[in-house]
Write a protein that binds this DNA or RNA. Structure first.
Lengths: 199, 199, 199, 199
DNA sequence: TATGAATGAGGTTTCATTCAT
DNA sequence: TATGAATGAAACCTCATTCAT
């Protein structure tokens, strides 16, 4: 009823159109070869309209990245909160991460793949994820379930491993996401070493 | 002695000057904000001279990356060849990688850090490293020392873990390279799990 | 009373709102940095509404200038008509000009200050003022009261002197308008020369 | 002989080419409708070359204005220094100003005409000229030759009168520069009043 | 071989104007 | 009549590459 709402709704829809178009174009051309004109054309709007919604090209790409990172963090946080044991936390957060990558393959490639780390926001995101994992690791160590030298370093390493492997996976077509999930989970919990020695 | 040789030597020296200058500028400004003019100035030569040695900017950055990757691969290969057991191969190649990162901090940041994966050559390098590790893993599995689902996936994951952690380390100043090495080795062999349960 | 009148009155009021807002914005940002969007916001209306009242940006700024020039000319004309002698005409028209500048400082700065002469309308206005002054000068010369080489040139020069000095005055805060008036009047009638030599 | 000199000479020649082309284009199209591309074409060079010599469009127009103002000030200063009496100083500096305007008609129109005052540098220049004149006026007053209320205000007014009249003259073709000079000199010394009353 | 001024295609960004509601 | 999101032409500026010296 209120006119402001109608305008506002339309504006928000256009904003979402731009974000989705940007995701597609960025995934297609990469973070540095994507031109604003390409994105505008993909969204089927004028170039000026992009600047009505985002102050600079930088701001647009940051919005794409931030949008993705926020959704991913929500997903992983919810998964982690749904279980109790630290081992389960590792399992389900890995599962959530892989499922997200599977459902958002193109944009995942943009954000965590080639050139993704170029943006501060990705680094901040990795730091956030690492902080969460560090807490779980510390808890596991306290419970005598985990053993790591430095929880902080280990967390950083595990985030690196997961994102790199998923970025690699997202670039090719020969591996199922389930295999990736199994690999991450197994390496995280046991590394490459045998754990059945006494069996 | 022959004049041709003297010219050739001078030419090679200039080429090396450019490569070293490029490493510094790339590390300083990043892969996309580094201008050819910056590199020429850092090398204290004219811009035109750069184009006498490298056909395009792309060729120059690839040369920087390739130079680094080649030296790194030599180092790791030699280390790996110096020992027999698969566990030792993991240990010494991790050690070699970390020492190289320590000795080539700036350029390591360029090649494996933010935006590094943007270049095909880095991806090819990661694939090469992964292939070597995959062979070691397969050998270890055959010996009953290692246990992994897919050696190929695990190798990719371990390369990702190592390079990401080292890239992170190279950006900051609070962690010693030895801690990093210990973390990578431990996670690779055991993950975060306890392996002394029966002890 | 008639509906048409009410609409008409409202329309005229909006038009005046836009003109006043334009004066403020133009004075604030200058003739070339003032955006239509700025003016619309200052007037608290939509940008589209501006175009219901003025066909182009040019038309709006011309309206601002013309409005000011018209009011100024009315004021000066009335003053000039109120006295008889040519010397008094000089005195009172200078006085009227200064009082107008004092009462319309911001818009005076726009119209006669920096960049003002960019618009044809200002040049036409100066020509109109100059024509009036020229007539007074010619009359004074005929009466043997004034002595000038070319009344046309002198008129142009006097208009330039007055508007420039007032534009300068309008930009700063250290001089009273009365001093300015005295200066213009004195220079117009006597220049910098002593006129009391024989006294 | 020294290569640097040859490069430097060529560079300076291009710089001058650009400045001259800019003067022509600015005079032709005005300070705000002149595009960098127009100037580059007029100078018969690439657009990039303009930016090799001037950091921004603003810097280029400032250079044009500053160049003109500097030459003008030199001319007037030299003229003023060549005579002793304050009345002669008024005469010869007016003469120098008019001759400069005559010899640099197009660029004079740019700098002191429509839109010229938009640039700070023009305002600063007017202030400098006014300061010189103020000193002469004060000297004349001390000698009992001149009579003004405020030397500062009078100086500002006289600068305004001269530049405005010359800008007007530069726009049209019907008046000789000598008439303009005579008018400025006469108005400056005597205003419009008769000074021969007692004769 | 070395130089660095010159080039110009191509990118980002602005803003007067339009038009569907 | 009023609105403000949308438009796109056109401007500024960058920088990899060339070329005359």
């Amino acid at each position: 009823m209120v006119p402001g709402n109608r305008f506002e709704r339309r504006k928000q829809r256009t904003r979402q159109d731009i974000l989705r178009a940007a995701e597609r174009v960025l995934a297609d051309k990469g973070l540095f070869d994507a031109k604003i004109a390409d994105i505008a054309e993909e969204a089927d709007i004028g170039v000026g309209t992009v600047y009505l919604h985002f102050q600079t090209k930088e701001a647009l790409t940051e919005a794409v990245v931030e949008d993705t990172v926020t959704r991913l963090k929500d997903t992983v946080d919810r998964a982690r909160a749904s279980v109790e044991s630290v081992v389960d936390k590792v399992r389900v957060s890995t599962q959530a991460l892989c499922r997200f990558a599977h459902a958002n393959r193109a944009v995942f490639r943009v954000v965590f793949g080639r050139g993704g780390g170029y943006h501060d926001i990705v680094r901040r995101a990795q730091t956030m994820f690492a902080a969460d994992i560090e807490r779980t690791l510390a808890e596991g160590v306290a419970q005598g379930v985990f053993r790591v030298g430095s929880a902080a370093l280990a967390a950083q390493a595990l985030v690196g491993m997961s994102t790199q492997l998923l970025a690699w996976w997202a670039e090719q077509d020969t591996t199922s996401i389930d295999e990736v999930e199994a690999t991450i989970t197994h390496l995280t919990l046991h590394g490459v070493g045998r754990t059945d020695e006494g069996v």
